[in-house]
Simulated scan of single mutants.
Amino acid sequence: MSRPDHMDVAAYALGVLDEQDTERFEEHLATCWACAAELETMVPVVGLLSGIDGETMTALEQTATDPGLLDRTLVAVRADRRRTRFRQLLAAAAAVVVLGGLTGIGFSNVISDAGPTDVVAEPTRDAPIDQPPTGAPTAPATGPGVGGNEEEGDQFDATDPTTGVQTTMFLATKDFGTKVNFSLRKLPGPRICRLVVVRKNATTEVISTWSVPDEGYGTNARSQGLELSASTSARLADIKQFQVESVDANGVASPLVTVKLT
């Protein structure tokens, strides 16, 4: 094949060869690797040229004799394509607005595709808002069970005039005997204490022991009182008194506060 035959690659790629020249070039292409490689590189260029209209091609032909005209032509073509793309974007946006007005979705659907949005919960009509509490105020509890349910049983309060220790006891009759819930205040430390049941028949029983730290309970150093629970097999009717005692290192006990039942 002659040198002009090799020059037919571009013409073949653009589809401007007649039927006879096309068949002749395809026969040559089957045996010429150079033309085949060149044709492969021209495929993207052909795709770009397919978007150029006849008027643009005519203008490009005229630039062969005027390099300055080539630059101006390329600038004009790029500007025209940018304007065309901008007009297409405006038309698409207008279509979305119209569609949104007709269907009730509009740009909200477009925005929702960009990511999750914050959901603000509205208050229900049934829930009262900022309503003052009803009912008469109750006096603050000072004994065991503060912050919980009311203690069961009979309440007994006592303050020792010598030591100043205060106690509140709730005594409830149970099948096993007597349940005791009690609190202590103005109890200094450090010391070891115990709760003793004194029956009417003069017998005694230690039903609880505990230690008091340096700051004590219900004192200036620690305002919170001590709350404890205990139980005894003695029936409430058989009990004369409960006595809180302090026990020294030698085991000698001294009374701190006494709750008398009879």
Rank of each mutant, 00 (worst) to 15 (best):
M1T: 00
S2E: 13
S2I: 06
P4T: 05
H6K: 08
H6C: 09
M7Y: 11
D8G: 02
D8P: 00
D8H: 10
A13H: 04
D18V: 01
E19H: 07
E19D: 10
D21W: 11
D21M: 09
E26G: 03
C32P: 02
A34H: 12
A34P: 02
T41P: 04
V45F: 14
V45M: 08
L48R: 15
L49Y: 14
S50H: 11
I52W: 15
T56V: 04
T58C: 14
L60D: 02
E61S: 15
A64E: 07
T65D: 13
P67R: 04
G68S: 02
L69C: 02
L70N: 07
L70A: 13
T73A: 10
R87I: 02
L89T: 04
L90M: 03
A92I: 00
A95R: 01
V96E: 06
G104T: 00
F107D: 02
S108R: 03
N109V: 00
V110E: 15
D113Q: 06
G115K: 01
G115Q: 03
T117N: 08
D118I: 09
D118M: 13
V120F: 05
P123E: 02
P123N: 01
D126E: 13
P128Y: 13
I129R: 08
A136N: 14
P140D: 09
P140N: 09
P140S: 12
A141K: 06
V146L: 11
G147N: 06
E152Q: 05
T159F: 09
D160E: 06
T162D: 13
T163P: 07
V165H: 03
Q166M: 06
T167C: 08
T168A: 05
M169D: 03
L171M: 03
L171F: 10
T173W: 14
V180R: 01
R185V: 02
P188A: 13
P188R: 05
P190A: 06
I192Y: 15
C193R: 01
V197R: 07
R199Q: 07
R199F: 09
N201S: 13
A202H: 14
V206I: 11
I207H: 15
I207F: 15
W210M: 13
D214G: 13
Y217L: 08
T219C: 04
R222T: 01
S223W: 11
E227P: 00
S233A: 10
L236F: 14
A237H: 05
D238L: 03
K240W: 13
K240P: 03
Q241H: 08
Q243E: 10
V244S: 08
V244Q: 03
A249I: 06
L256N: 01
V257F: 09
T258H: 09
V259W: 07
